[in-house]
Each structure stands twice: as C-alpha cells, then as structure tokens.
Design a binder for these strands. Structure first.
Length: 273
DNA sequence: ACTACCTTCCGCCATT
DNA sequence: CAAATGGCGGAAGGTA
C-alpha cells in the first residue's frame, strides 16, 4: 500500500483479516483514498455488526462515517477536517475539541499522534491503567495527554481520563459565563453531583469548583495582560460576574489584584520592545 | 469589617 | 463479593 509520504507499507493480509478481529483500527486516508471501496466499507460494517470494536485515527473517521457506524454517535477527527466530517455525515455528533472519543464500541481520534493516545486508552480499557502506563513509558510518550486541541489545552493541566469528565470540562470551557455549579457540571457529565465531584477529583486532582475557578482565573489573567478591556468587562466575560469577586479571586490565586497584573505585563512588554 | 446565608467538599453508609 | 453510585450532614470557606 503506497502512502503519501514517500514509503509503502507491506500488508500481509487482505480484508479477510477483519473476519475474526476483536478490534479494527482504520488509519487516516489521504485525498486520493476516495472514494473508499465498497468492499472495505462492507468489511468494516460487518466487523462492527459482529461485535468487534472499531476505531479510527484522523481522517479514518470518514471511513467509519461512510460505513454508517457513526450515525447517532459522538465522534472526533483531525480538527482541520472536523467541519467536513460534520457536513458529510449530519447524523454524527462531531466534537472537534477532543483527542479521542469512545462512544460504545466505536472509538475515534484526532490527528495522527492522537492515535497513540487512542491506543493507550484501548490498552487501559482492556488491561488496566498499570499496563497502559507501562506501555507509555516504554514508548516514551505521555500516558495521558493534557486536554483537547482547544486553545485552552495549554492553560490547564487537567488530564481527565474518562469521557464524562472530559465533556464536563469542555462544557465549562465553552460556557465560562454560566454559573458552572457542581450540579450544572454534573448534568453535563451525566452523573449525579456526588458521583461527579468524586470522579472529578479522582481524575484531575482538583475539586470541580477549584478547577472552574482556575479556568476563569487563567482566562481572565490572559485578558488582563493582552487586552485593554475594562476589568468590569473581563470579569463578566470570564464568569466572575462582578469585579470585586474577580479581584478577590486574583488575590487568592496570584497574591496580586488584576490591576497590578496588567501593569506588570505592560512593563515587561515595554522592556522587551 | 461584620454577619447571616449559601455552596462546596468529603467522610460515612445504604443501595445498586 | 467488589465496585460504582446516591444521599446525608457537618465543617470550611466564599458571597451578599
């Protein structure tokens, strides 16, 4: 099989290999991979119907989509192709802000290296966290990559492993101005408040309210440093609601009020300019 | 600065 | 039987 990157891959089996497979992984395909042969779609579909676990990497999601396996399911793909995926397969709930997603037996992942994260997740699913960690160590990769592909991923080092906590976090990032109470987040994660806070803490090491506050603080700090918006506006847009609350949060977290943070940033700007 | 009030967090235990 | 889940209540800490 020729690839677009100058080398070829020797395959030792044909589609019949899918007959007994427990897990089928569809890699990304290039533009000249279209249209995907019917027999390929049939083979993947048959495997899924037989109960096999089906996964995709990057644009491999389009193959699963074409096979109809993603209908009604949540799925992701490389961010660059997310819109296209959604346009082509309207019944799919595309979430572009994710490294990988598992919806029942169907797993999808984002751009190429996300396939490694996906694989580790599969291993963890089958053999437990210990084994997954050992494999990651041997491969010299991170076991749990932080966040999604969103612009916030670098801001918070939260690395939830379960899908539900992920979606609660995604919800929080997108709805910063909302109250984001434990109850509200629990709803987004489809868990009871009690169970949610327990799971959240287990996976991220922080409590829900703290995580939300950190999310707000990071965002507000960036806005203070990089824009000239009035404090009142920033406070409202980051969910602090009023500047007094934001000010207190800043003092708690940074030891300095918003004004000082901004002034210091300006000093640094001038010095480096 | 102070107070009454509210939310969060978390241990504990019953239930699923 | 082990693990996941839900409910309760009090301490801690934040808010109006």
């Amino acid at each position: 099989v020729p690839t677009e990157t100058g080398f070829s891959v020797l395959v030792e089996h044909g589609l019949e290999a899918l007959h007994g497979a427990d897990t089928v992984v569809v890699p990304g395909i290039g533009d000249n991979g279209w249209p995907v042969a019917e027999e390929v779609l049939d083979a993947v579909r048959a495997a899924a119907e037989r109960g096999a676990r089906v996964a995709s990497i990057c644009t491999g999601a389009f193959v699963l989509g074409a096979a109809g396996l993603l209908d009604g399911r949540r799925a992701t793909t490389h961010w660059y192709h997310a819109r296209d995926l959604q346009a082509r397969f309207p019944k799919v709930k595309v979430e572009e802000d994710r490294i990988f997603i598992s919806d029942g037996p169907v797993w999808t992942s984002a751009g190429a290296t996300a396939g490694v994260d996906l694989a580790l997740a599969l291993i963890e699913n089958d053999f437990g966290a210990e084994v997954a960690r050992a494999v990651a160590k041997k491969l010299v990769v991170y076991h749990r990559r932080a966040g999604g592909q969103s612009q916030f991923s670098a801001l918070l080092e939260l690395e939830p492993k379960s899908d539900r906590i992920q979606s609660a976090l995604t919800y929080a990032k997108r709805n910063l101005t909302s109250k984001l109470t434990v109850h509200e987040l629990a709803d987004a994660a489809h868990l009871s408040p009690r169970q949610f806070s327990r799971a959240f803490h287990a996976e991220t090491g922080q409590s829900p309210a703290k995580a939300v506050e950190n999310l707000r603080l990071e965002t507000a700090r960036l806005m203070m440093e990089q824009t000239r918006h009035p404090i009142e506006v920033i406070a409202r847009q980051t969910g602090f609601a009023d500047r007094d609350r934001m000010r207190r949060a800043f003092l708690r977290a940074f030891g300095q009020p918003p004004q000082v943070i901004r002034r210091n940033a300006e000093v640094v700007d001038k010095a480096s300019a």
